[in-house]
């Protein structure tokens, strides 16, 4: 047996974001679930340690005893990643992050997303750059949602974003990784974690992202909109782990023609 298959070479280094170590490379959202019980069960099944939330107005005078998401997804157990979903300007995104920081007792890791329009939910890069700069200056640790443009990804990294998160396809589309070559280019240049955020539809999409060499995958709808979200969460956990292992193992080269698996020597016919 060669050394290549030994136990020591089967160990992966953990994901590190802003100096904190994570065993799971799957990050999940908490939107679109039927109720908080389903949210909790799916997130447990996913094994995720970083969980995104949105910041919205509190209901005034309606259901005062209503359970709070943060009672179910406790900041003591999970790294809460507040997002700026629904923001179309840098100003709104910065304001949202400041409220999130106050809400989470000074926690300064945020997912920045500034959207361009409602139909595509594509990132508005101009506004994203403005917001990222302002947030970093204010001490935030920014994980930034962006297009799969390698030049912009590099610029966001150079500005000081702690992770760059290109889309695989539009948010909630489930179309998978539409431009794996761009993701590869982003990965080649990167010195911060690169996570595919948005576009994953099913387990194989998450595996493809990880096989490309991404440091992690962030998803919400692929789990929440599955017929059985808890089972899909478990599938995604496995898919991310499988893709990561396949990346580390290094795939065989693609060849146009066949190559026999059984030896030719010793044939008796």
């Amino acid at each position: 047996m060669t050394n290549q298959g030994s136990a020591s070479s089967l160990v992966d280094s953990p994901l590190v974001i802003d100096g904190k170590t994570y065993q799971s490379r799957l990050l999940v959202g908490t939107g679109k679930y039927k109720n908080l019980d389903e949210t909790r069960e799916a997130i447990t099944a996913s094994g995720a340690e970083i969980v995104t939330v949105a910041v919205r107005r509190t209901n005034i005078g309606q259901n005062p005893g209503e359970p709070n998401l943060l009672d179910v997804i406790s900041p003591d157990k999970y790294t809460i990643l507040p997002n700026t979903a629904g923001c179309y300007t840098a100003k709104d995104a910065v304001r949202t992050c400041k409220l999130a920081r106050e809400l989470l007792g000074g926690h300064n890791l945020v997912k920045l997303e500034v959207l361009g329009d409602q139909k595509t939910l594509y990132p508005d890069i101009t506004e994203t750059l403005i917001a990222a700069e302002e947030l970093i200056k204010d001490g935030f640790k920014v994980m930034v949602y962006t297009t799969d443009d390698p030049i912009i990804a590099k610029r966001l990294e150079e500005m000081g974003c702690v992770a760059v998160m290109p889309l695989g396809a539009p948010i909630g589309s489930g179309l998978g990784i539409r431009n794996p070559y761009n993701i590869r280019m982003i990965l080649e240049n990167a010195t911060v974690p690169i996570l595919v955020d948005a576009g994953v539809g099913t387990a194989s999409d998450a595996t493809i992202a990880m096989e490309l060499g991404c440091d992690g995958v962030l998803m919400n709808t692929a789990i929440a909109a599955a017929q059985n979200p808890v089972m899909m969460a478990r599938a995604m956990k496995g898919a991310v782990e499988c893709g990561r292992d396949a990346f580390l193992a290094g795939r065989m080269p693609r060849k146009l023609y066949a190559s026999a698996s059984s030896p030719i020597d010793g044939t008796f016919f």
Binding site: G29, T30, V53, V55, L70
Partner: peptide, 10 residues
């Protein structure tokens, strides 16, 4: 005044 809280989101 705005009073906000965390809710489900991606």
């Amino acid at each position: 005044l705005e009073i906000v809280h965390a809710i489900g989101g991606g």
